[in-house]
Amino acid sequence: MERKSISQKIFMIVLGGSFVGSLFVGGLVYFMLASSNVQDALVKAVISVIISQIMFLIPVFGIKKIIDDKIVSKLKTVVNGMHEVSMGNLDYEIYVEKTGDELEELAESFDRMRMSIKAIMEKLEKGEL
């Protein structure tokens, strides 16, 4: 079973919020215009729901793409490295883009830990420990 990424979960929450928000806007439009012509108010309310949903989702898709490219991809790189090292591949190095953020620091810390484990294992094999 494939796990949902954090960005997918956030996206679903934001999508639900945008849907509720656009329904709220549509309801306001309907009730403001319903006194004059109910049929016209309903059409305008539906149009306002569709437009507000489109106007909201375009930037949300862009933000999700940025989060996936800048954050989730780095996390997947670190997770893959952790998996390799946990399976005994102490020569597996993690390379992440140098951005100076916490994810780069996480990858560097993990790589230092991998090198320390490798050095300890080599000393154990030589009988130095």
Rank of each mutant, 00 (worst) to 15 (best):
M1E: 07
M1D: 08
M1C: 07
M1Y: 11
E2I: 13
S5W: 05
M12D: 12
I13K: 01
L15N: 15
G16N: 04
G21E: 05
S22H: 00
S22G: 02
G26I: 03
L28Y: 13
V29S: 03
Y30R: 03
F31S: 07
F31M: 09
M32L: 11
L33A: 00
L33T: 00
S35M: 09
S35D: 14
S35K: 11
S35H: 06
S35N: 12
S36I: 15
N37T: 14
V38G: 07
D40Q: 13
D40W: 10
D40L: 15
A41C: 09
V43L: 08
K44L: 15
V46M: 11
V46G: 11
I47W: 10
S48Y: 00
S48E: 00
V49L: 00
I50D: 03
Q53R: 09
M55S: 14
M55Q: 09
M55G: 10
F56H: 09
L57N: 02
I58K: 06
P59R: 10
V60K: 05
F61R: 07
G62F: 03
I63F: 05
K65E: 04
K65L: 05
K65Q: 10
D68R: 08
D68E: 14
D69S: 08
D69H: 06
S73N: 10
K74W: 06
L75P: 06
T77Y: 02
T77P: 05
T77K: 13
V79N: 14
V79E: 13
V79A: 12
N80H: 14
N80F: 13
G81V: 02
G81R: 01
H83A: 08
E84T: 04
V85H: 03
M87N: 14
L90W: 14
D91V: 10
D91I: 06
D91H: 10
Y92F: 15
Y92E: 09
E93N: 14
I94P: 02
Y95C: 15
V96I: 02
V96Q: 04
E97P: 05
K98P: 07
K98V: 13
K98R: 11
T99D: 14
E102I: 07
E104G: 02
E104I: 00
E105S: 14
E105P: 04
L106C: 01
A107M: 01
A107W: 06
A107I: 04
F110W: 04
F110G: 00
F110D: 01
D111C: 06
M113K: 02
M113W: 02
M113S: 06
R114K: 15
R114E: 07
M115W: 14
M115K: 13
M115T: 11
S116F: 13
I117H: 11
K118S: 15
K118R: 15
K118N: 12
A119Q: 05
A119I: 00
M121I: 12
K123R: 15
K123M: 11
L124V: 08
E125C: 02
E125H: 08
K126C: 00
E128C: 01
L129T: 09
